[in-house]
C-alpha cells in the first residue's frame, strides 16, 4: 500500500472524526492521528463491542536488542514497582525475549506479553470464570473472582501470567493489583477505554522506535489491518490455533 493513499485516507477520516486534537498534542504527528482514528473513545455507560478486536503488531525488525522502553513504560503505567527478594516470584506483564535461530544464527529481539488469544486456554481452564475475554478481545483476569489456583499459568503457552506472591501497596489507582491473584497484560484496558494506546506502544512510538502498533484487527481500514495485509505476519505458536491478537512481523 502506498504511503500517499494511506495519508489521504487518514486525513479524511481524522477530519471526519474531528478528534485530531489528541494526536497533534503529541508528536510525531501522522502516526498519532492514525491512532486517534483507530481508537475512538467509547461513550460513558456503553459496554465494549465485539465489532472491535484490539490487537497489536510487533515489527521485530525495528525492535532493538537491549532496548526495554516498553517494559519500563508498562511497569510505570501499571505500578509494577514492588521489590521482590526472589526475582522468580516477581511479576512481569511484558518482557523482552532474545531469540536466535539455531540453524542460521539469525537473531531477533521482541517483547512478549499476553497474546490476547481469540481462543484463550487460560479462559478455558479457569475454574471460576475469573479469566475472561472481553467483547473487544482483551483477555483479562477478573481479580474479584480469581481464587489464585494458577491453573491458567500452567495452561498459558506464553508464560504471560504472573502470580502476586506478596502483599502490595502503592498501586496505581487505575490499575488495582494485589496479593494472591493472577495477573497479566491488560492491553492497558483502562487507557484503551479512554481512547489512548497501551503504555508500551506509546513509549515505543514516542521514542521513535515504531516497533509496536496498536489497533482494531476487525477494521479492514485500520493501519494494523493494512500492515498485516501487506506484510507477512506471524502468530507465535500458531500450531496451537489460538488466533492471537498480538502478531509479529519479521520472524
Amino acid at each position: 500500500m502506498s504511503h500517499n493513499k494511506r495519508r489521504s485516507f487518514l486525513v479524511a477520516s481524522a477530519a471526519g472524526l474531528g478528534t485530531v486534537a489528541l494526536g497533534v498534542a503529541v508528536a510525531p504527528g501522522i502516526r498519532l492521528i492514525e491512532v486517534s482514528h483507530a481508537n475512538p473513545v467509547r461513550p460513558a455507560g456503553q459496554p465494549a463491542s465485539s465489532a472491535v478486536r484490539w490487537g497489536m503488531l510487533v515489527d521485530t525488525t525495528r525492535c532493538a536488542t537491549g532496548c526495554d522502553d516498553c517494559v519500563k513504560a508498562c511497569a510505570a503505567e501499571n505500578g509494577i514497582n514492588e521489590t521482590v527478594a526472589d526475582k522468580r516470584q516477581g511479576a512481569q506483564w511484558i518482557r523482552k525475549i532474545d531469540i536466535k535461530e539455531a540453524k542460521t544464527g539469525r537473531q531477533h529481539s521482541l517483547p512478549m506479553m499476553c497474546q490476547h488469544c481469540a481462543n484463550p486456554p487460560c479462559v478455558d481452564v479457569c475454574p471460576t470464570g475469573a479469566s475472561m475475554k472481553r467483547a473487544d478481545g482483551i483477555v483479562l483476569v477478573d481479580r474479584h473472582v480469581c481464587i489464585g489456583c494458577r491453573y491458567c499459568m500452567m495452561a498459558c503457552p506464553y508464560k504471560a501470567r504472573s502470580f502476586v506472591h506478596q502483599p502490595l501497596s502503592g498501586q496505581n489507582p487505575e490499575v488495582p493489583r494485589g496479593l494472591g491473584c493472577v495477573e497479566s497484560c491488560t492491553l492497558c484496558v483502562h487507557r484503551v477505554d479512554k481512547g489512548q494506546q497501551p503504555a508500551c506502544v506509546e513509549s515505543c512510538t514516542t521514542a521513535g522506535h515504531n516497533a509496536l502498533l496498536f489497533g482494531d484487527l476487525n477494521d479492514p481500514n485500520s493501519e494494523i489491518s493494512r500492515r498485516a495485509a501487506a506484510a507477512a505476519t506471524s502468530q507465535i505458536r500458531a500450531d496451537l490455533k489460538l488466533n492471537t491478537g498480538v502478531r509479529y512481523q519479521g520472524i
Binding site: 481452564v125 473472582v145 480469581c146 489456583c149 491453573y151 502470580f163 494472591g180
Partner: peptide
C-alpha cells in the same frame, strides 16, 4: 494452597463449565 483461600465460597458458586478443574 490457593492464593485466595478466603474466597472458597467463590469456588463453590462460580463455575466455568469448560474447566477441567471445575
Amino acid at each position: 494452597d490457593l492464593g485466595r483461600a478466603d474466597r472458597l465460597i467463590i469456588a463453590a458458586t462460580h463455575y466455568n463449565f469448560t474447566s477441567v478443574f471445575a
